[in-house]
Design a protein around this nucleic acid. Structure first.
Length: 428
RNA sequence: GUGGCCGUAGCUCACCAGGUAGAGCACCGGAUUGUGACUCCGGAGGUAGCGGGUUCAAGACCCGUCGGCCACCCCA
């Protein structure tokens, strides 16, 4: 087969699935609006330097997962692997950080990874960022907002909130040394990946899946003992606020982030129903990033959710979805004159009843075959046009459903009564 | 980047000691001339992901490659 196929890890989303996506997107937008967040729309491509400077040069994302290329001018461009960097860049460039600012965005992100369940090369994230507030009540707002969203989506029972504080840069630096010191003494017992990370990104060893490695960590230094007073106090306050708001959480002292810009609060909503890719939503504070990208020092917190993963969860929750009707009304027309009259009249009906989904059979065919399509469409009513109707200036209206089993009648009514008859039939 | 499983009609899958493919669903047509759902009858649709090798003969065996799924890794 020499047919052209989609790029690996970049999938098509068909109409059968898009209704679920639309439900998710609508709900997300409604909840965010309820908290006063404004939508920002951002480019999919940014200068490569933006991601290197924000995410971190030695992270896996930057080292081996970015779609990077030179444009025709020879400048290095990158398909965004995440949204925060671009959002911060835009906020600085557009000068909108003079006051606390709540923003959200949604769209495709790109990471060159091996595809698996819940992980694709082009995937979709919705991100939420709050700028200009340094206190943990803002962290709490974001988490409470998430909790509301899960309720609205019916996902509360499938997700668990994990939180942690990773402190400021100095604390992490001190801890990193202590951790390396400790782990080097046990390096032979560590799994291969952790040995590698010992030198590249030692904090990532904390969330290693290897039980042996986790056992070794039990005897080592704890990040929480390195936090300064402010970070500890903020974390305690966050816990207090979450409890007051009735949001259940688990403190996971080994929760860390893969991107370098995070500090203090980090959190993750995880599920056990999606296999290995269980993180459905994650984020944290990044107080240093705005300044690092050239703006005025501005505290910030944010998170992003993986839309594919949420759609998968929704699909699990709903089970097998009932086939929904494609249309409310199906228009059958046989013969050139009938086709013409049907087209014109149907347009008029659409004009009067914009909420109705009206599908017109296109492409000819016998009454029988058109009626078959009308049935398959799930429409409740068929409008039928043929030579007889054209001659009589009338239309036949037939009920296809709602009959409690008994055979439903059909009526031929004058064109002038089309609307009223239709409305009566479709009234709830 | 590593590993395991897999790749046959639109979809879900089957068959055969290796001898040039079947089912269900879907699709199209018919069962009295303008009418669907159930039923019956008929039809169309596949050079078995692609390339190479072994063989008289391969979709079936071997190698490579591409793709899918899952896991490692990574992360939303």
């Amino acid at each position: 087969m020499s047919e052209v196929t989609a790029i690996r890890g970049m999938s098509d989303i068909l109409p059968a699935e898009t209704s679920r996506w639309q439900f998710l997107e609508r709900t997300v937008a409604a909840v965010l609006a309820a908290y006063g967040y404004g939508e920002i729309r951002l480019p999919v491509v940014e200068k490569t330097a933006l991601f290197k400077r924000s995410i971190g040069e030695v992270t896996d994302i930057v080292e081996k997962e970015m779609y990077t290329f030179d444009d025709r001018n020879g400048d290095s461009m990158t398909l965004r692997p995440e949204g925060t960097a671009g959002c911060v860049r835009a906020a600085i460039q557009q000068g909108i950080l003079n006051t606390p600012r709540r923003l959200w965005y949604t769209g495709p992100m790109f990471r060159y990874e091996r595809p698996q369940k819940g992980r694709q090369r082009q995937f979709h994230q919705t991100g939420v960022e709050a700028f200009g507030v340094a206190t943990p009540d803002m962290d709490a707002e974001l988490i409470v907002l998430c909790a509301r969203l899960w309720r609205r989506l019916g996902l509360t029972d499938c997700v668990e909130l994990q939180i942690n504080s990773i402190g400021n840069a100095e604390a992490r630096k001190a801890y990193r040394y202590a951790l390396i010191d400790y782990l080097q003494a046990h390096s032979k017992a560590l799994d291969a990946d952790s040995q590698r990370r010992l030198h590249s990104n030692p904090l990532r060893i904390l969330d290693s899946k290897s039980p042996e490695t986790q056992a070794i960590l039990d005897g080592g230094p704890a990040l929480k003992d390195f936090l300064d007073e402010e970070a500890s106090a903020d974390f305690a306050r966050l816990c207090e606020l979450l409890e007051a708001a009735g949001v259940a959480y688990v403190v996971n002292r080994r929760l860390v982030r893969g991107l370098d810009y995070y500090n203090k609060t980090v959190f993750e909503w995880v599920t056990d129903r999606l296999g290995a890719q269980g993180t459905v939503c994650a984020g944290g504070r990044y107080d240093g990033l705005v300044k690092q990208l050239g703006g005025k020092s501005t505290p910030a917190v944010g998170f992003a959710m993986g839309m594919e993963r949420l759609v998968l969860l929704l699909a699990e929750q709903a089970g097998v979805p009932e086939a929904t009707a494609d249309a409310d009304v199906y228009v059958v027309a046989v013969g050139d004159d009938a086709e013409l009259m049907a087209l014109v009249s149907t347009e008029r009906v659409r004009e009067e009843n914009p909420q109705l989904r009206i599908m017109q059979h296109v492409g000819g065919g016998s009454f029988k075959s058109q009626m078959k399509k009308a049935d398959r469409s799930g429409a409740r009513v068929a409008l039928i046009w043929g030579d007889d109707e054209v001659a009589a200036h009338a239309v036949t209206i037939k009920s296809l459903r709602d009959g409690n089993g008994e055979r439903l009648e059909q009526n031929t009514v004058p064109l002038t009564e089309l609307d009223s008859t239709l409305c009566a039939l479709l009234a709830p």
